[in-house]
Amino acid sequence: MDITGNTVFIPGATSGIGLALALALRERGNTVVVGGRRTELLDRIAAEHPGVHTVRVDTTDAGSVEAAAADVLGRFPGLNVLITMAGVMRVEDWHRPESFLASAENTITTNVLGPIRLIAAFVEHFQTLPDATIMTVSSGLAFAPLKITPSYNASKAAIHMLSETLRLQLADTSVRVVELEPPAVRTDLLPGHAENEHAMPLDEYVAEVMGLIETQPDAREIQVESVKFLRYGEARGDYDQVVAAINAEDPHGK
């Protein structure tokens, strides 16, 4: 993925990593469209950041995704980058189904079905372009689990394997598939997580990501240095130690 000159749609970018990445991409000369469910947040972003475009989209609603895709492509027919940022993370206790089932279903719908719907809405258009990128968003927790967030871990592992497989299927097209793998980052993904001393500061994370995109335009996975502890535990042979460490030190990890 080139660092500049793109038209980028980022659903789920009204806060946190998504918004910070949207602003960083805008600063580098990209046309950026931010998507989200809450119109008041979209209106605020448009007012505070002139030049950032917005569209309402709820990725848990197939009709909303279709309508948003038609809107975005109607206004920006040169759209060539999709970043499937939308996602939720919830603490769950699986000892009692009544305490976790609704949360688990919502997490899978948002974190797995949402990206699938978004990719389905744009993949044909992308194949008509000389160069296009689908950037999925998994997590370091796709590779080592945080015990308090079972459905989140599972959803991000699904996104990792989906990314791997789509890359194989789309290898005969002009569409690149890139997987962004965040570590714990100081955002409001979980209550109190923005103050988590074990998490990476948001501005540092986005700066490192932008640097990786610029210096490694053909990368299949965007991995800041700190996520490699989680990503490669099994390959290094210290997976059990990695799992023990993140569950002992970071009760609200990403």
Rank of each mutant, 00 (worst) to 15 (best):
M1W: 04
T4F: 04
N6V: 03
N6T: 02
T7D: 05
P11M: 04
G16E: 06
A22V: 07
E27S: 14
R28G: 08
T31Y: 06
V33E: 00
G35D: 00
G35Y: 00
G36M: 10
T39R: 13
L42M: 09
A47T: 11
H49W: 12
H53Y: 09
T60N: 14
G63S: 11
G63E: 13
S64I: 08
V65G: 02
A69C: 03
L73P: 00
L73K: 09
R75D: 13
L79Y: 07
N80R: 00
V88N: 02
D93G: 07
E98K: 13
F100D: 02
F100W: 10
A102S: 14
A104T: 08
E105G: 06
T109N: 14
G114S: 04
L118C: 11
A121T: 05
E124D: 15
H125C: 01
D131E: 14
V137E: 02
L141I: 07
F143S: 12
A144N: 01
P145M: 08
K147N: 11
P150D: 00
A157I: 09
A157Y: 08
T165A: 04
R167G: 01
Q169R: 08
A171S: 13
S174D: 01
V175Q: 03
V177C: 00
V178T: 09
P182A: 02
L189C: 05
L190H: 08
P191W: 01
E197Y: 10
H198W: 15
E204H: 04
E208F: 08
G211T: 15
L212R: 13
T215R: 15
Q216W: 01
P217H: 03
P217N: 09
P217W: 05
F229E: 10
L230V: 02
R231F: 13
G233C: 09
E234C: 06
E234R: 15
G237L: 06
D238V: 03
V243Y: 12
A248R: 15
G253Q: 08
